[in-house]
Design a protein around this nucleic acid. Sequence first.
DNA 1: CATTAAGTACACCGACATAGTGTACAATAG
DNA 2: CTATTGTACACTATGTCGGTGTACTTAATG
Lengths: 142, 142
Amino acid sequence: MLSKKTRYAMMAMIKLATEYGKGPILIGDIAQSENIPQRFLENILLELKKMGYLGSRLGKSGGYYLLKHPKDVNLAEIIRHFEGTIALLHCVSEKAYQPCEFCKNEAECKIKSVFKDIRDYTFRLLEGKTLEELASSKQTDM
Amino acid sequence: MLSKKTRYAMMAMIKLATEYGKGPILIGDIAQSENIPQRFLENILLELKKMGYLGSRLGKSGGYYLLKHPKDVNLAEIIRHFEGTIALLHCVSEKAYQPCEFCKNEAECKIKSVFKDIRDYTFRLLEGKTLEELASSKQTDM
DNA sequence: CATTAAGTACACCGACATAGTGTACAATAG
DNA sequence: CTATTGTACACTATGTCGGTGTACTTAATG
């Protein structure tokens, strides 16, 4: 199950994608339209900024805005950052791989192949979902 | 990411499947061969017993044994029980469905369809992996 | 230049989940 | 009867999640 933080991050990014090119958007506006506690959202947006996705402007008429083009950001990257990995087991993760702590012989492990298959499928789908696509279908929010 | 408890449960079940029909297996033997802390494993086996998968015998020559045939138990049920759901979002879960707390119009939500797709694929694969299949390939452990 | 509206920084916190452990008891084989 | 096994369940240590508190910095505007 994804954490709230991850879901909030996705929602905020999609919102910012729908407003792409319109200049800075207030945290408060995002919080309100996406139903996210504002103080929590501040932390998340700051984190997304440090990841290089967002820019911000201080002071009056400040706010956050997408730095990258919506077609260049997909759900896989966002989820991977906030969840640590896409995979259900470390031993099948690409970016957070750790050798299995139990397996005596990973190559022969049949469980591993199922989870690897699941991770690959999941990754492929999430990677294919760009903010552009998600924003365009957004009469409604997530 | 799956919890240790879930992984331990899967491993213990596979181990018991490899010993299916051989009578009760000691907790200690499972703990040792699968590298699971014994006291923790006790809790897990008890839980699996309450789920109806395992039987047990007390006293000398006691232990746990699979009640169901290994071909009648799959990974999906085990994971679902210990993780609560297979899905990454409640709103796409079959067994732990909850309406999306954010979505104003779930039917139109494009994110939902991706996660539904992922859940369905994951479930299909895990459901197809029976203990019988996993035990037969088990020169090595998970 | 003062005021006000924004984001920034980061420490802190309560609640809950995870991963166990302690202790005492009950059943069974031999 | 006794040793060996599982049973029961309360407890605990640690970490993560989902925030909040407080003070500060920057920028627009009038």
